[in-house]
Design a binder for these strands. Structure first.
Lengths: 203, 203
DNA sequence: TGCAGACCGTGACAAATGTCAGGGGCAGGT
DNA sequence: ACCTGCCCCTGACATTTGTCACGGTCTGCA
């Protein structure tokens, strides 16, 4: 039987190298390539024809979930597995919608990662069980697109005028969006709201 | 020559396992143990007597910098190397003050990590050059202890009354500390200030 | 066609926040 | 003994922010 060819995408080179070393120890897994930018994955996948692509979420160029979606849409003959630091419910939901075949956090034991890759290669789906439960408990995002945008922009501590300028909106509108976000998330203020939304992976 | 014995401390098990696999490939390096909590490192170091301890900063129980300090203070016969995701100038300064022998970010190539371990074992210091430059450019933290505390507490979006209660201070005092922090950091408001302070590793 | 929901904007109000000018206490250094 | 710097508190003030009520546009759906 030929080995499972995988591709590694993570923005930290040490992690790429380390995961590569780890997975190469498995007799039935072969690392076909790796890169540190989301927008390089597609080209690399076309060149190397991997069976499974391991994707981090936080990457420059393009985030891992979008990459999974692109791989799906462009009918690349591979499946994707999200491997991320942050077990945020919203990420899981979005990843599955985007067509990812699996979702594990970076805190799982190495043996389970290899197992996950095999399962995905076999056509199964793999989802971190604890995260799945959390995801159901939290439910879907209550935020509208605009609210997401303003929270996204507010997260770093910009003032209203800055936000309004950035989004080409009036100050009043920005404040209304923020106000409704705050209400929906039971937050104390917009920063609290941005914080909570981010924790759930809704940004 | 006997191999260099190392200890791995990182909160994410997959990273521990992967780094272990990676470093075990080096003929002159041997992984003596690993753990995921800062407050377990000391005991483990006493048991396993490693030459070099690789420490992540973000860990439950105790952060990696404090662990390095403890190792130093208790005269354990080992040196410590901080291996972190975040290349923040303030972290570097604090790590060196705490007695760490090296500081690298997680996106250095694997070969350099092994080299860093060898150098540290040989008694040299290893510091990410780019980060060192940044550290000089940024300079030391301008914040007083109290200012650090209030920014720390403000970071997650709590209101003033909540902050005041947490720190057992009056609201006016909290606002004064925040105000001076904002001024020192050229920030727009306290969240912006907290954000900037965190980017520099001053929290 | 009408309705609901999301979007954009305005204006007004109350509350929270940032700023400033004080005052006093307590440590460390000259 | 004096000064300086940091801490703690107070009170007053202007600005920012959060909330609300309102009117308008557009889209999708029944």
């Amino acid at each position: 039987m030929s080995p499972i060819k995988i591709l590694l995408a993570d923005d930290q080179q040490l992690i790429r190298d380390a995961l590569g070393a780890l997975l190469s120890l498995q007799a039935d897994i072969e690392v076909a390539g790796s890169c540190g930018r989301g927008d390089q994955v597609l080209d690399l996948a076309r060149q190397t024809q991997p069976d499974v692509v391991l994707l981090d979420i936080d990457m420059p160029g393009m985030d891992g979930i979008s990459v999974a979606q692109q791989l799906k849409e462009q009918h690349l003959p591979c499946r994707s597995l999200i491997v991320t630091t942050f077990g945020r419910p919203g990420y899981l939901a979005r990843a599955l919608e985007a067509g990812a075949s699996g979702f594990v956090v970076k805190d799982t034991p190495a043996s389970q990662l290899a197992e996950a890759i095999r399962k995905i290669h076999a056509g199964l789906r793999v989802v971190d069980p604890q995260l799945a439960a959390e995801s159901f408990a939290v439910g879907p995002s209550p935020l509208t697109d605009r609210e997401k945008q303003v929270l996204q922009a507010a997260k770093d501590g910009a003032s209203i005028v800055t936000l309004a300028a950035q989004l080409h909106l009036s100050q009043g509108t920005v404040r209304n969006h923020l106000s409704s976000s705050i209400a929906k998330l039971n937050a104390e203020n917009r920063y609290d709201a941005a914080h909570r939304a981010e924790e759930n992976g809704w940004l």
